[in-house]
Structures are given as C-alpha cells and as structure tokens.
Write a protein that binds this DNA or RNA. Structure first.
Ligand SMILES: O=c1ccn([C@H]2C[C@H](O)[C@@H](COP(=O)(O)OP(=O)(O)OP(=O)(O)O)O2)c(=O)[nH]1
Ligand SMILES: [Mg+2]
Length: 459
DNA sequence: ATCCAGACGGG
DNA sequence: CCCGTC
DNA sequence: GGAT
C-alpha cells in the first residue's frame, strides 16, 4: 500500500505503475485484510498524519511502514531489499522527530548582533562546480530543455526555478540516483524531484520530448534566438501566423536591432574561442590607449571567468584620474567604426546619462572572420569595483549576490553597494547610503562572504 | 501571499 | 509605459 | 516552481 499524502500525484502514479510492472500488487484499501505486506509513506509524513490516514492502527499491526526511498531502491535493484533504516515507524513506536534537515556544520561567522541570515541558500556563497566534472549532465541537460521552453513562453519564474536547480545540481560531486536525494537540495521541490527521478530511471523526460516536437515550441525557440526578439514578440508573431525567418522578414514589423539580428543570425548563434575574444578585446585596448593614454580596459564576462568559449566580448573601460573617461566614448566608437571593426550598432548610450554602454557587432580583419557581439561599458574610476563585479558575472551569481544584499537591507548594482536601504515590498522607500568599495573583495566583505575569484563565480 | 536583481536603451 | 538585454 |  502506498499512502498518497505528501507524495505528488504524478510520482504516485509512476510508483504505482512501476510496482505493477515489477510484479508487485497494489493494495488500495484496508478491506483486503491480511494481504498487506508493506506500507509506503512519504518521508515527511508525521505519525499523526499516518494514524489519521489508517484510522485504526490495528489495521496495519505488524506491517512495516517504509520510506519511498525503500521502494525506489527495490524497483531499481529489482529485488526486495532489507528494510533496515528505511523503516519509518514500526507501528507501536513513536515518530522520529526530524528526518531531513539542514543540520550540516555551519562554520558561521555571522555578526553576533542583528538577525543572522543563512547564506547557504545563496549561490554566491559557494564556489561554482568544476566545469569538467558534471556527473549529472543528463539531468541538467533535460531540465535545461524545459527551462528554455518556459523562458521562451514568458513563464520566466518557472524558468528561473529550473535554472537555479540546474546550478545546484552542477555543484554535486556524485550522481543523483533517487527522488529523495534530489528533493533534499535547496530549490528542488516535489515537482523537480519527480522529473529528476524520471530522468534517472528513464534516461529522459517525456514532457520535454513531447513539448520539443510541438510546432509552437520550435517556432518560439527560432524567433527568440533572433537578437532583440523576446518571448512576448515571439508569441505575438506566432499568433499572427508567422512560422519561419522568411515570414518574419517579409511580414513582421522589425526594429533596427531585430534587423541586425537577422542579418547576422547564423554567426550570432555561435560562441567564439577564448583566443578570438582576447583578440577582439585587444583591438579595443589598443584604440583606447591611442586616444587617451593611461586608460584601463578589462575583458570581463565569461572571458574573465576563464571560460574556454565566449558568447560575446565584454569590455570595461575606465581611467584612474577619475575624469578622463568622460567624453571618451564617442571618439572611441568613431575610431572603431572608421577602421571597419564595428559593423553594426545595437544600442548606443544617449549621451549625458550616468551609464555609458554600447552594444554592437564587430568583425576582426581576417579571412572568414565572423560577426561577433561586443559590449563596452565606460565607468567612472570610483565605480570600478562594483562595475567589475557586475560585468564579470555570471548573471546568476550577480542575482544571487544582489538578493543577499537585499535581504541584508542593502542594495547592490554596477554603480555601488548601498546600506540602510528601506523597502516597502519591492519598492525602495529610502536609498540608504553608499558604502566604500575600493575592491571586489571589499564587496564580498560587506556582505559577510568569503572572496571568490572570477573562475568560481560561474553559476 | 509574496518574492524571485537591478539597471539601461529602443520604440 | 512595455520589451529585451546586460 | 520553490522558499518563506
Ligand atoms: O541578465 C544579466 C546578464 C548579464 N549580466 C552581467 C553578468 C555577465 O557576466 C555580464 C556579461 O553579460 P553576458 O550576457 O555577456 O554574459 P557572459 O557571462 O559573458 O556569458 P557569454 O559567454 O554568453 O557572453 O553582465 C547581468 O548582471 N545580468
Ligand atoms: Mg559575455
């Protein structure tokens, strides 16, 4: 008998199917007396909840009550394995107080005053897993498919959950082999554990397979891979009956960005080698140096995190004297365009605003060079550290760190770290005051985190 | 029930 | 303002 | 979807 309380609907039916498949017999009511051999319950089911379900304890007298983990393992090994530690409660006994908990040793160095925030739930508090040893690649790939599908259809919170779960799984040193192992992880609930379980058992996700075949999903995927087209526009176009790039070119109203996106469509789908990213950054550095000696440039993004391929090149420009960065942008862009290096603009700073950002497309002067995305930001020297933090990422690392800052009554952006921020819900009521952040390390310090080099911020 | 990062440019 | 992007 |  499987007690359904706390076991997801889907997981329950999967377990039931499996039991039958393996020659087991499901008992669904207490009427079939004397034929009950094992009772399966969710790990978190309390003794009271259990008693309530069976109504009369005598009905299950002497029958072992086991965690779902026991059933999972029996099914995996195709044998009745020893009950041992899988026993939930031998019927006349009492319920163990806590079965799973976050009782791992907390090497906590919290400030003794104020409410301490447990940073274990924040990705920015942990090194990202090694790029080489993702032992759960199958799981992360399958979940990634669904994450992308949800993102493309504007269900971005669901997509966020999937991405967080994937990052969590990537850090694991050992393969996940059961529902229970997955469910314990922060950010993985019944639904995701369910899916992970299916991947482990079946080697794939039927839901992802089914959805990926659909015309809508495939079309949204195509449209959103155009630079400047997001889920909303893709859905709009799909609703208008557009189905391929030719439809889009001839029937849709295209922004300037989307026109460039289409022009460079194939090239921009690719990532470039780390070496090429270095060459592109060097072109900017040389031009900047010629225009204004002493100006500093940093290649950030995935390049600074040490990745072997880069989706684009992210260059941060600043000047140690604190003022020479002003007015540098226009001449720089002019120079790079004149040389034929910059081929198209995607976004240019409306001058006289704080942020100085350029997004565009460039091409090296080589045979068979491809169009590459290029991002340049010019920042005042006083904002160098927070700007480096921001532009180095990863995006998930930034979001995690900013969330932590938020929870601590602070606010982190590329411009600085502020304390004493007061919020009403999401709305800021008081901006608080700027903290001194001379280095990246100082930002970690303010947030009570151990410093992490760029390579370990790859979440 | 509410939050999930915070900022910028294009249109 | 909404959308898309970093 | 998940955590609080
Ligand atoms: O939503 C985002 C996207 C980016 N960034 C920051 C972190 C990121 O590292 C940097 C550069 O963005 P990019 O999109 O280039 O990411 P990347 O980390 O460089 O990866 P890729 O190799 O795909 O370019 O800007 C954010 O803070 N939030
Ligand atoms: Mg990048």
């Amino acid at each position: 008998m499987i007690v359904p309380s706390g076991i997801g609907k889907k997981r329950l039916s999967l377990l039931q199917d499996k039991v039958v498949l393996h020659g087991g017999r499901l008992v669904s009511s207490f009427e079939e007396e004397g034929r009950l051999t094992h009772v399966i319950v969710d790990d978190m089911l309390s003794i009271d909840g259990f008693k309530k379900y069976v109504e009369d304890e005598a009905r299950v007298a002497g029958v072992p009550v086991l965690k779902t983990q026991w059933l999972s393992r029996c099914l995996a090994e195709n044998a009745i394995i020893p009950l041992g530690e899988h026993q939930m409660f031998a019927m006349p006994k009492i319920c163990p107080t806590v079965l799973v908990g976050t009782s791992l040793g907390h090497p906590h160095e919290e400030q003794t005053k104020e409410i301490s925030i447990n940073k274990d739930g924040f990705a920015c508090a942990h090194a990202s897993g090694m790029k080489t040893d993702n032992v759960n690649q199958l799981i992360t790939e399958e979940l990634g498919k669904l994450a992308k599908i949800y993102k493309n259809s504007n269900d971005h919170w669901r997509a966020l959950t999937y991405e967080r779960a994937i990052n969590q799984i990537k850090k694991l040193p050992k393969p996940i082999s059961s529902y229970e192992e997955a469910k314990v992880l922060h950010g993985i609930g019944p639904s995701l554990a369910d899916k992970i379980w299916e991947i482990v058992e079946q080697g794939k996700l039927r839901k992802a397979e089914k959805l990926s075949e659909g015309e809508k999903v495939r079309t949204l995927e195509l449209f959103t891979s155009i630079w400047g087209v997001g889920a909303t526009t893709a859905e709009l176009w799909y609703g208008m009956g557009l189905r391929n790039l030719n439809d889009v070119k001839t029937k849709a109203h295209l922004t300037h960005q989307q026109q460039i996106g289409l022009k460079c469509f194939d090239d921009l789908l690719e990532r470039m080698s780390r070496a090429e990213a270095g060459e592109i950054a060097a072109v900017i550095r040389k031009a900047v140096e010629e225009l204004c000696p002493g100006t500093q440039t940093f290649a950030c993004g995935s390049y600074r995190r040490g990745k072997s391929t880069c989706g684009d090149v992210d260059v941060l420009v600043t000047h140690p004297d604190g003022v020479s960065h002003e007015g540098l942008f226009q001449p720089l862009l002019k120079k790079l365009k004149l040389s034929g290096f910059l081929t198209d603009d995607l976004m240019i700073q409306e001058q006289s605003t704080a942020q100085q950002k350029y997004l565009g497309v460039c091409k090296l002067h080589k045979e068979n060079a491809k169009y590459r995305r290029l991002d340049i930001i010019v920042m005042p020297y006083g904002e160098l550290a927070p700007a480096l933090m921001y532009f180095t990422g990863s995006a998930h690392f930034n979001r995690s760190m900013r969330l932590l800052a938020n929870k601590m009554g602070m606010s982190l952006s590329e411009h600085g770290l502020r304390a004493g921020v007061v919020r009403q819900g999401r709305e800021k009521v008081n901006d608080g005051h700027l903290l001194e952040t001379p280095t990246e390390a100082s930002i970690f310090q303010h947030l009570g985190l151990e410093y992490r080099p760029p390579e370990d911020r790859d979440h």
